Computed example of a mutant assay.
Amino acid sequence: MDKITDMPMVQVEWDLECAMAEYGTGLLRLCLLYLGDRALAEDAVQDTFFRAWRVGGFRGESSEKTWLTRIAINVCKSYLLSPWHKRRADAEVRDALLADAPPEADDTLIRAVLSLAPKYRAVILLYYYEGYKAREIAELLHLRPNTVVSRLKRAREQLRPMLEEWYHDG
């Protein structure tokens, strides 16, 4: 029974292997952008699927992608709050993220996004990199839609001066 509605919860047929194949790459990209470290991101994705399996699978209360993304965000947040991660330097994190990029790749945009405060970085990553709408981001982050829109606006305002020369060079 669902504690909120006192209605029986419906369990949806959920295939872990199919979910991993369909959403694994996107979740890895999200975790990599969130955490800035490939090995840590891989661990976070593995932990995401483990937690999803441990709760008994997808119940159908949202889309499967939204559900897994929410779990991944929670995993990344817990990793970021760990004492080990707090001791790492921001420059080291950015360098680790950019190590996988081809040498000729322009890293200006990703460096600018990673320099944002976590609350702004999260909405930018979910909106631009993952393609979620503001309403969906609000559900994922447990915020009001207006808060998400405000954070997107403030993040864009912070990114604009950092990217002005980069944008006009291309």
Rank of each mutant, 00 (worst) to 15 (best):
M1W: 11
M1S: 15
D2I: 14
K3H: 11
I4P: 07
T5I: 10
D6K: 14
P8R: 13
V10I: 15
V12L: 10
W14G: 06
C18H: 14
C18P: 12
M20R: 12
M20K: 14
M20V: 14
A21V: 11
E22T: 12
G24P: 09
T25I: 10
L27N: 04
L27D: 04
L27T: 06
R29I: 10
C31A: 13
G36M: 00
D37F: 00
D37T: 01
D43Y: 06
Q46D: 13
D47K: 09
D47S: 13
F49Q: 02
A52V: 01
F58N: 02
G60N: 04
S62L: 06
T69E: 05
R70D: 14
I73C: 12
I73F: 08
N74S: 10
N74V: 08
C76M: 04
R87L: 12
R88M: 11
A89M: 06
D90M: 12
V93I: 14
V93S: 06
A96F: 00
A96L: 08
L98T: 10
A101N: 12
P103N: 07
E104K: 13
A105T: 03
A105P: 00
D107W: 01
R111K: 11
R111E: 00
A112P: 00
L114G: 01
P118A: 04
K119E: 15
K119T: 08
Y120V: 02
R121V: 07
R121N: 07
R121P: 01
R121H: 14
V123R: 00
V123W: 04
L126E: 01
L126Y: 02
Y127C: 12
Y127L: 08
Y128Q: 04
Y128P: 08
Y128A: 07
Y129L: 08
Y132W: 13
Y132I: 05
A134Y: 07
E136S: 03
E139I: 09
R144V: 13
R144A: 15
V148R: 00
V149L: 10
L152A: 02
K153S: 08
R154G: 00
A155Y: 02
L159Q: 06
L159V: 03
R160H: 09
M162I: 00
E164T: 06
Y167A: 11
H168W: 14
D169H: 13
G170D: 09
